[in-house]
Write a protein that binds this DNA or RNA. Structure first.
Lengths: 345, 345
DNA sequence: CTGAAAGCGCTTACAG
DNA sequence: CTGAAAGCGCTTACAG
């Protein structure tokens, strides 16, 4: 095997600059107490040799250890369960980087409870990833965490006005627009009504999807008339009742956009009333159910955010933040996935 | 900050088992020369304390260093340029993991040249990622690399019959099926012909996309008639001429599927002949051009594989292979992305 | 302002 | 078969 040139170490730089290891370390890490002359000499050597520190050695020597908390909603729609599972896997990976991780589940629909839980984290960890609720009380709690020196990222659902360092999730109005374009083009030249079933319009992500959807339908598919949005509270049972009513009340219903969870109820209603194949049904999040509906042709498209990617991204971003490294921006951008029957993973 | 329990080190295990560090190391790493009694005692301690090695310390102590080669085609369609750029970035990341990386560009369309280049790598590196050409001569070269102990992954374009350890890329027949479903549904109830322009059907990925596309059109969109596939050699100029001829010869052309590169030529032809908005145009790879065509409504959908993801994945997979670690399977699955105007990154 | 030395968690010759 | 010691590349008190 051909020998490749060894990368320069601090020792190499020290020899080159004719100073001690400690001094090179001081200069490289911008610690005080070095004469201007020495600083200059060392910096020249650093540049000349193209020194780059070995991150593993740095971590080891510094004895760095962090603790991260992942705050997820209680309750168990398929998406959140999958996210929790992926967070657990990320925590295992983090252990190898010498960071402990903890998964906490909180009733995220109750702002007070969520805020209280967040406040309880002060002094208990270095980084927090939270599936947030955009409410003043929660925003305050997030800001308090940040002020106390904790690195905070919002996960899946953002609080744009807060001091959180980063949002890890998708642009939900773009996701809504994407759903609308697919809906409009799949329906084609037909005319008719579109049913809209959200979980709760108090949730920022649902509201944004709705907004994006209506924007595109309203400007580009004028033959389609969206009905007023219904709220099924991410419950399959409630969604089923709503979908049944939609189908019965509107004989000219040509599409259903499911903005939140509860796709199962909608699929059941479509099948039961024999409308599975003439109503275009688009929803969010790839789960074992939506996957099956795509294959069966009950759903026509699924807009997805990858929970594995989101969990890993949260971990990487917090780690980069806490250890002052920079992240690979491209890698941390969460895609708005479109899945058809044909490109399922 | 609350103290979190320190993870156990080898020293902890040694104390617990009342043996030396070296012995614990021998047992943990299954090195020979330890009595059965001692092995058992140490293993109990290992298990009791739940010992997991610190990968950074291991790497440092072992003085591990690898060299990887990335073999990409010469020539410069936008996708390959972007892939090259992303590979360069991966190489920078690899440096921090103490691996040197080298980007080599070879005329990948010439099997002999590519095979020769690959053979030249024996003894010069520990891992190879290659944009492959499915040809017996190349397969042989890949197999020879593998036999010589080098870890090989194919990138973007696979050689299924070879001994390569892994393929990092998309399922191209699924990508073709995805294009077909979008084409069929976007065209809707209209009837007509579909133009097919590939780069070269000698390329496995192009052939597979074509196959998948025809499969779906032939079974589900019987009102659409795909024309015989044309070969534009990934050249914008040639593709433009082919597209112009298609549009002139077939007044009932309702769609164009661009299987390879050269979208620019097709877009120009569509615009020039005033057919940009009634012909459904679907192609591959998100570039500065295809992105613009989506926004302008000239292209209707772009099927994409993320070159950044592919470059990083190749690096991670090779590193895991070479250092005997296991990879995160989910993370290394390359998605078949669908981009519309609305979900562009 | 500068340097010698110990230490982070693991591995590797070398002795015994 | 087992252990003491040096070393990987860096950081951190501690002396001077």
């Amino acid at each position: 095997m051909i020998e490749h040139p060894r990368r320069p170490t601090l020792v190499d730089v020290a020899e080159h600059a004719k100073v001690s290891l400690a001094t090179v370390d001081r200069v490289f890490n911008r610690r005080p107490g070095v004469s201007a002359r020495t600083v200059e000499r060392v910096e020249r050597a650093l540049a000349k040799l193209g020194y780059r520190p070995d991150p593993a050695a740095v971590r080891l020597a510094r004895g760095i250890h962090f603790n991260f908390c992942f705050v997820l909603p209680t309750g168990s729609n398929s998406f959140m369960s999958e996210l929790a599972k992926q967070v657990e896997q990320s925590i295992a990976w983090l252990q190898d980087q010498n960071v402990t991780g903890e998964l906490i589940r909180v009733d995220v629909f109750d702002p007070q409870v969520l805020a209280e839980a967040l406040r309880g984290l002060v002094g208990r960890c270095h980084g927090v990833a939270v599936v947030a609720l955009d409410h003043p009380v929660v925003r305050d709690a997030v800001d308090e965490l940040v002020r106390s020196g904790i690195h905070v990222v919002t996960l899946v659902s953002d609080i744009p006005g807060s001091k959180r360092h980063r949002f890890i999730g998708i642009d939900n109005s773009a996701a809504g627009r994407t759903a609308a374009t697919l809906m409009g083009r799949f329906i084609g030249p037909r005319t008719g009504k579109i049913g809209l079933i959200a979980g709760s319009l108090i949730l920022r992500d649902h509201a944004e999807r709705l907004f994006g959807f209506q924007q595109v339908i309203g400007s580009e598919f004028l033959a389609l008339a969206p009905l007023p949005p219904l709220q099924g509270h991410d419950s399959a049972r409630q969604c089923r009742l709503l979908a049944e009513k939609l189908l019965r009340d509107h004989k000219d219903l040509v599409g259903i956009y499911s903005i939140g969870a509860g796709n199962r109820g909608i699929a059941d209603a479509l099948v039961e009333l024999g409308r599975a194949h003439d109503v275009v049904f688009i929803g969010h999040e790839l789960t074992e159910f939506s996957r099956r509906y795509l294959i069966q042709g009950i759903m026509d498209a699924v807009i997805n955010q990858d929970p594995g990617h989101e969990a890993r991204s949260a971990s990487r971003v917090l780690l980069a933040q806490c250890s002052g490294q920079q992240m690979i921006v491209d890698q941390e951008r969460i895609r708005i996935d479109i899945f058809l029957r044909d490109n399922l993973p």
